[in-house]
């Protein structure tokens, strides 16, 4: 059978698409979104997969019908029926009803999962989470551990299996705080505080970063997110405490100046209330957690 040029070309397009997808398939180990390391990322990935599956009910018929119709009703095929006035109220109605039903199904999922994965919601009400205050700067991240009284730059550590609650702000332009392997990103905005709750299942080294373009140093604005055993975490805290450096107002001002590829730095002490002061620098701004978020955050 001779394949007509348009069809042959369609096959070529399909082949190219399949190639791209195939290329995509061989490297999942590098894909933190597809290989989640915590319950948040896992749930978010799975809802994406499920929604994808539900949508195939309306999407696959499009591909199949398009291929069949285009082939069968080509002008050169004299055998095909030609009914230029053909209409069908039944099909017309189906084109509304089926997508509407799928929408209703998806809408239910949106409601349930958006509430389940509200970044502000504590992951386990019976476990006291580790609190970390994250401050976006040009072009690095400062992490303050208020309970441990330490701070670090471009590296963050937490015990695996224990929820971590982030309080996030920015001391520069808008940033977005994201550890892809753990899920859920949220903006960091000057004068405001946003929140995020994450959990790593197992020890591991992940990468986090700012995803919101913020200037020349943006590409290198990433940090190491280290999930470790409780003992290793204690050792990590002790290492920071042994660093001898203190983060007082003057040290903070120096740190806040723009810098790229800032080396990992530990601070043994942190001026109390520093996080609040950073937010308060932007006068007239509002504490977003309290005002804007109707969710679970208690301020």
């Amino acid at each position: 059978m001779r394949i007509s040029p348009p069809i042959r070309r369609c096959l070529a397009v399909a082949g190219a698409g399949a190639l791209a997808l195939g290329l995509a398939g061989c490297a999942t180990s590098y894909a933190p979104i597809l290989d989640p390391q915590g319950p948040v990322a896992l749930g978010q990935r799975d809802i994406m997969f499920r929604a994808f599956g539900i949508m195939m009910i309306v999407v696959l018929p499009v591909f199949v019908l398009a291929a069949i119709f285009v082939w069968r009703y080509r002008a050169s095929n004299a055998k095909a029926r030609f009914e230029p006035e053909w209409e069908s109220n039944g099909i017309d109605a189906l084109t509304w009803i089926v997508p509407a039903l799928i929408w209703a199904t998806l809408a239910y999922h949106v409601w349930v999962y958006t509430h389940a994965f509200d970044p502000y919601k504590p992951l386990d009400p019976y476990v006291k989470p580790l609190e970390v205050q994250a401050v976006a700067q040009d072009w690095k991240w400062l992490f303050i551990y208020p309970e441990e009284g330490i701070a670090s730059v471009n590296e963050i550590a937490f015990p695996a299996g224990r929820p971590v609650t982030f309080r996030i702000t920015s001391d520069t332009v808008m940033n977005s705080f994201f550890i892809p392997a753990l899920g859920s990103q949220i903006y960091a905005m000057a004068g405001m505080e946003t929140r995020l709750n994450l959990l790593a299942d197992r020890p591991g080294a992940f990468r986090g970063r700012n995803t919101q373009y913020s200037g020349d140093g943006f590409p290198d604005q990433h940090f190491a997110a280290l999930s470790m055993t409780a003992e290793d975490f204690d050792a990590w805290v002790a290492k920071a405490k042994a660093s001898g450096e203190g983060l007082d107002a003057a040290a903070y001002e120096a740190l806040a100046k723009p810098s790229s590829k800032h080396p990992v730095t530990y601070y043994a002490t942190v001026e109390p209330g520093l996080f609040g002061h950073i937010i308060a620098r932007y006068d007239g701004a509002m504490a977003m957690t309290a005002m804007d978020h109707g969710g679970a955050a208690a301020e």
């Binding site: 978010q44 809802i47 929604a51 949508m55 999962y113 958006t114 977005s176 859920s184 990103q185």
Partner: peptide, 15 residues
């Protein structure tokens, strides 16, 4: 539609 799922958008936003 995937991006319209807020939880999925938390993963894919800005990417």
């Amino acid at each position: 539609v995937l991006l319209a799922f807020p939880p999925a958008d938390y993963l894919m936003h800005n990417s």
